[in-house]
Design a protein around this nucleic acid. Structure first.
Lengths: 211, 211
DNA sequence: CCTGGTACCTACTCGCGAGTAAGACTACTG
DNA sequence: CAGTAGTCTTACTCGCGAGTAGGTACCAGG
């Protein structure tokens, strides 16, 4: 809260990380517009001119946050997914990785999903980019595994729906944090792989037993 | 654009509608914070004090917009859905009504979905309320039709995922307006009813032929 | 111990937008 | 044609927050 007079002298790289962490925290709680540079500097434990010296304007700072968090998330998913497997297993591992990341990085997720997508400005670009990478990935998985190759548009829209279902479920999860990540991931897996039609009949999907 | 000096004298009810329309337009384009009361008054063709005289503060105006558009949308869906039918048919008619509304009310949809959900304030309440009514509806449909009754939490989360898939697909649709509403609705229907598992095998859902 | 460079600060400017005061125009009503 | 109720305006105040000017503390190397 920065009640002390002067902050300890630290190398630039370290300060920048501190500032970014503070920015993600504040942006996630307040949103881009409501967040003030004054508050971010307070949380970061430094004074406002430092923000401008290191990270530039408010917009630049925000964009940098988006970029950093998006990269962290995509890497988490890329690490978690298992290529050269059956389509359902790939999807399953991807979902687990996604919900695992969200569970451990609520603030990151809120900045990415809530804030970035609602600011029409140049920020969304980073986000749209990441999102479309995810959509393309799913679309490719779909196209590659389907017997009757659907149109590009069809695969893409289905992928968009799936990604949206994931986002929405993650959002719902924020209000029900008692649920474990695996359970939430499994639910979505069942929905998109089996469909309500099967679920209504009591048919469920379960991961192939391994190991 | 209000280049003329004085606006024509009109009864309050009519002005209020004009103002609301202008507000929805501006909010949908700019977002809540970026939108200014000055611009809304310009678009509405009147001066700023009229806004305050008729619709109160900016927050009140926004909340009123949300409420109006949410009501319009829920009514559209309620009108479109066909009760006392098989679960899949009910879902299908609901999806058609939803995408039909979005297709014809882009601005409304953007205000509802993008703006309202991203403002943490008291606005979201209206939205959350509407959204949870939709989720409850789907959850009820699910619970009622499933043989092995799942837990409340399970039904609710699946419903949240479904609603989210719908929202996301609607969002995607904004970027691909050439697609007809029926096609988009049918895609989502197939995804959530059949599941990828069936789609991959070439099994698709189609509406029962009637009439 | 000076000299410069980097980290860091206090204390401003300045524009933008929410909200208002005070009055002017129009139209109906007796 | 006066009164009055409701519509509509111009022309402000005022706070908040982005961004900056102009320093002060601290640590090198000479």
């Amino acid at each position: 809260m920065r009640t002390e007079g002067r902050a300890k002298r630290l190398p630039r790289a370290v300060r920048e990380r501190q500032i970014m962490d503070a920015a993600v925290d504040v942006f996630s709680r307040l949103g881009f517009h409501a967040a003030s540079m004054d508050e971010i500097s307070e949380v970061a434990g430094i004074s406002k001119p430092m923000l401008y010296a290191y990270l530039g304007s408010k917009e630049e700072l925000f964009a940098t946050c988006i970029r950093r968090e998006a990269t962290r998330m995509m890497e988490a998913i890329a690490t978690g997914v298992e290529p050269d497997q059956e389509p359902d297993v790939q999807l399953w591992s991807g979902l687990r990785a996604f919900f695992g990341f969200v569970g451990e990085n609520r603030a990151s997720w809120m900045v990415l999903h809530r804030q970035a997508s609602s600011q029409g400005g140049p920020f969304a670009v980073e986000l749209i980019d990441m999102r479309s990478r995810a959509v393309s990935l799913v679309a490719a998985l779909l196209t590659q595994s389907t017997k009757a190759p659907a149109t590009k548009l069809e695969a893409e829209s289905l992928a968009a729906a799936l990604v949206g279902a994931g986002e929405s479920l993650a959002e719902w999860w924020l209000d029900h944090p008692e649920e474990p990540a695996g359970v939430v991931a499994a639910r979505l897996m069942n929905l998109v792989w089996m469909g309500f039609g099967d679920l209504v009949d009591g048919n469920v999907w379960h991961p192939p037993s391994r190991r």
